[in-house]
């Protein structure tokens, strides 16, 4: 497959018994971009990830990473990847530095050879003071940063992060985003999964919106929103539905206990909202709205 893409997937399929986790997915990842898989729990994001980092052989279709077939060249591919899995799979009984030394050994580095790189990465992730700490002494955010540092030991051509900030508090999340953006400016290609809209918006150049193993939409975040939605939305309690008149220019959707009215102008929405002081919100539309529209259900709802 002659290509300038790092990842090339065509009609990718994965079955587990009679459940189809990935169902005919097409995409490619270009060098230097940050590409995101966005979808609710059970959308097939992690399965796609596992196929890319060679944990899971594909059930059908074509997949090439660095132009190589993961079924045949798993070691060669993984030699050039940095993988940050969903769980912090560190060795709990040894120190931060020992964790990095041992992991670099899997890539064939000697401890002496890798030490400057370890120092550099600990500094980059602001973990220098923890170099000789045990893993159990680290906070959740520090562990995550260490796992990311570990994934950078081999100067990967592609950094893969599976839900990098799930379960972390907002400060830590912003710190990790800052580090990932810094890596991007250094030219590292990033592939991540997330179910946080904010994360997708902050980091991703392009997004693949997935649900039930299928691609719903693919493109730049702002384009996806622009192409699918009006720019303004009014949120009202669903009980008010009978009290309002909806002009034909307005698009109406109901999700949970809320009514969403989409329009091209805020003034049109203000007119409708007037009688409901303190009970409404008018804002610009974003990925969250797009997601609700595409999947017809809340992001964090699992099946």
């Amino acid at each position: 497959m002659p290509t300038d893409s790092l990842i090339e997937a065509r009609q990718l399929v994965k079955n587990y018994d009679d459940f189809r986790a990935v169902d005919g997915v097409d995409f490619h990842v270009r060098p230097g971009e940050c590409f995101g898989f966005l979808g609710p729990n059970g959308a097939g994001k992690s399965t796609l990830m596992k196929m890319i980092y060679c944990f899971s052989p594909r059930g059908g279709g074509e997949l090439s990473i660095f132009g190589l077939d993961p079924d045949k060249k798993a070691s060669e591919i993984k030699n050039r990847l940095g993988v940050v899995a969903q769980t912090d799979n560190l060795d709990e009984d040894i120190t931060v530095t020992q964790n990095l030394q041992i992991y670099s050994g899997y890539f064939g580095f000697s401890r002496k050879q890798i030490q400057p790189k370890i120092d550099e990465l600990l500094a980059f992730m602001s973990l220098e003071s923890k170099a000789h700490a045990g893993i159990r002494q680290l906070s959740g955010g520090m562990k995550r940063r260490l796992v990311i540092a570990r994934a950078l030991l081999n100067d990967p051509d592609l950094l893969i992060l599976d839900e990098p900030t799930t379960g972390l508090d907002p400060q830590v999340r912003h710190l990790i985003w800052a580090k990932l953006r810094e890596l991007k400016t250094q030219g590292v290609t990033i592939l991540l999964t997330t179910h946080y809209m904010e994360e997708a918006q902050e980091l991703c150049d392009r997004l693949l919106v997935l649900d039930k193993g299928k691609v719903l939409s693919l493109g730049r975040p702002e384009e996806l929103v622009k192409n699918n939605l009006h720019p303004y939305v009014l949120e009202l309690p669903v009980a008010k539905k009978s009290e309002i008149q909806i002009p034909p220019s307005i698009q109406l959707e109901t999700h949970g206990d809320k009514l969403f009215l989409f329009s091209d102008t805020p003034s049109e929405l203000e007119k409708i909202a007037l009688p409901f002081q303190g009970q409404f919100r008018i804002r610009t539309t974003g990925l969250e709205d797009l997601f609700l529209k595409l999947t017809g259900r809340d992001l964090h709802e699992s099946e």
Partner: peptide, 30 residues
């Protein structure tokens, strides 16, 4: 981090000994 030249794959023996060392190190601590 500039696009790096492709590093050679470690040999089977090198990888096996890296795993051996991991267990040795972890066990050694307890």
């Amino acid at each position: 981090m500039s696009p790096n030249k492709i590093r050679q794959l470690p040999t089977f023996a090198r990888m096996v000994s890296a795993i051996w060392y991991r267990h040795y190190r972890v066990y050694q601590n307890n």
